[in-house]
């Protein structure tokens, strides 16, 4: 195995950071020019928001090994916090309220992370459901959060940074892309730092981690805080840039599961995996509805679509868990290696 990989490192592969730089250059330089408004509104914006939420959950679940079913609650906390900060704090710039919204989500994450000091695995997952139900209940119950709006559905503020309005589809895309890129880069730095190693150590063997002097309790709460911060900011992007409305119903348990599926399908403990998973989750329903409409015509209405989506997605998750537990990332790496090998041997 080592022999094989060392062979490949001799191949003229671009350094790791080069691939990211090229991708970013494409996303900033080319996509805004060629993309249609449908591409931004229906695909890229939800992809960016869910991808970032996946990165956040992956830090907690993939790296630190603490299963959470409360992701949507932290997204909601971020979105509503940003809305209220923007509404109620005079002169706070948009970026400031987004950052503070992340902090609010992180604080809530720490509170709901406290059970992790005692609970593990399945039991912890169930206790994080409390976050899911409590946050949604609080946001619906107290209309102060939605500024006494009768319907509970509120319009997101206009996006602008330093007087530059980012209202159009392209503007919101660039806004989301920038935040997602920065946070993803920082997350990547985090998981390769000593703190990231501590996360993995606690996931793989908590007793050994404690014995060698890793502060287990502090590190677990830190994982909850960082993860919730990122998920909270993802919630802001979801509400402000993608939906442009803020409502509790959009952050229900289904959304939490969706984010969990994203990291399982994409690959646990992989930053790239979150984006692979998010791409699949976003594109897959669109592709399925196109395909269904094309093959079955009018029979394939929205009810059938919804049902078939769930069935196919469920089957896909089972298949992934059995055939490729390391997710799309592992699949991608293997295919790339094969291609390189084929290319080398010619």
């Amino acid at each position: 195995m080592t022999a094989i990989t060392s062979n490949f490192s001799a191949a003229p592969v671009l350094p790791k950071w080069m691939a990211s730089v090229l991708l970013l250059a494409f996303a900033y330089g080319v996509v805004p020019l060629i993309g249609s408004s449908y591409l931004f509104e229906a695909i890229l914006l939800p992809f960016l928001a869910l991808g970032l939420a996946g990165v956040g959950l992956n830090i907690l679940t993939g790296y630190a090994g603490q299963v959470s079913l409360g992701s949507a609650a932290f997204m909601a906390a971020g979105a509503f916090a940003a809305y209220n900060l923007n509404l109620r704090v005079e002169g706070l710039p948009l970026i400031g309220s987004i950052f503070l919204a992340g902090i609010v989500a992180a604080a809530i994450g720490i509170v709901f992370g406290l059970p992790s000091l005692r609970l593990k695995g399945f039991y912890l997952a169930v206790s994080t459901l409390a976050a899911q139900f409590f946050v949604q209940w609080a946001l619906t119950k107290f209309s102060w959060f939605s500024n006494e709006s009768a319907s509970g559905v509120i319009d997101a503020p206009r996006l602008s940074i330093g007087g530059l309005a980012l209202d159009g589809a392209v503007g919101r895309y660039l806004f989301a892309l920038t935040i997602v890129s920065i946070l993803t880069f920082l997350a990547y730095r985090l998981v390769s730092s000593q703190t990231g190693r501590n996360f993995i150590a606690i996931r793989d063997n908590e007793t050994a981690a404690r014995i060698i002097g890793i502060p287990v309790l502090k590190t677990k709460l830190l994982a909850f805080a960082i993860s919730s911060f990122i998920i909270g900011v993802a919630g802001v992007i979801w509400a402000f840039a993608y939906l442009r409305t803020v409502e509790p119903a959009g952050f229900d348990l289904d959304r939490s599961f969706q984010i969990l599926f994203i990291i399982i399908i994409g690959g646990l403990a992989s930053i790239r995996g979150a984006f692979f998973g998010a791409a699949l989750i976003v594109v897959f329903p669109l592709g399925l509805s196109r395909l269904g409409g094309f093959l079955l015509g009018d029979v394939f209405d929205s009810g059938v679509l919804d049902m078939s989506q769930r069935i196919v997605l469920g089957a896909l998750i089972i298949l992934f868990l059995i055939l490729e537990p390391d997710g799309l990332v592992a699949l991608w790496d293997r295919i790339r290696r094969r291609l390189l090998f084929a290319w080398q041997s010619t």
């Binding site: 920082l186 985090l190 703190t195 890793i214």
Partner: peptide, 12 residues
């Protein structure tokens, strides 16, 4: 790891 004094923000 027990010796590490820097916090996560410094490391990031």
């Amino acid at each position: 790891a027990y010796k590490v004094r820097s916090n996560f923000a410094g490391q990031v």
